[in-house]
């Protein structure tokens, strides 16, 4: 199962790869990283239909914001689930994300337990 993380902070890649080390090693999970909305859209469009089932995106990014990316993905790839991860856990962002079709909303610092739960429930759904 392939998941895409989008965040302008490059160290997010190391962090998530290490956090999900076991799942990745066991082959249950495949992670990809994009560091901007644009890059994320390019990655998603390389395969048709895209191999990604889930996108986790930061909201505050230079260029395309996470919320714009969410709308773009929802219109171009309606089957892909999208959740937002943001340091700004305010009501406005939450409402906007939810009304644009986000599946979940995680606040930074990420609670990895709930994130892992979310991902394992996805894995189980596929199995």
């Amino acid at each position: 199962m392939k998941i895409l993380f989008v965040d302008d902070e490059r160290d997010v890649e190391d962090l998530f790869r290490q956090k999900f080390r076991k799942e990745i090693r066991s082959g249950k999970l495949e992670l990809a990283f994009a560091f901007s909305g644009q890059e994320a859209l390019e990655l998603l469009s390389t395969d048709n239909p895209p191999k990604f089932v889930y996108v986790f995106s930061d909201i505050n990014m230079p260029g395309m914001s996470g919320l714009e990316l969410l709308e773009e993905i929802k219109s171009r790839f309606p089957l892909i689930q999208v959740s937002m991860i943001s340091a700004y856990g305010d009501q406005e962002n939450y409402d906007k994300a939810m009304s644009s079709g986000a599946k979940g909303f995680f606040t930074k610092p990420v609670d990895f337990d709930s994130l892992k739960k979310e991902i394992s429930s996805l894995i189980e759904d596929r199995d």
């Binding site: 160290d11 190391d14 962090l15 290490q18 340091a87 700004y88 930074k108 610092p109 990420v110």
Partner: peptide, 21 residues
């Protein structure tokens, strides 16, 4: 606070991970 929050999250997350490792 907002500017510090992100790097601080990395510090905390990576140190937590390293303890696990």
């Amino acid at each position: 606070a907002h500017e510090i929050k992100n790097p601080l999250n990395f510090v905390n997350n990576f140190s937590e991970l390293s303890v696990d490792f």
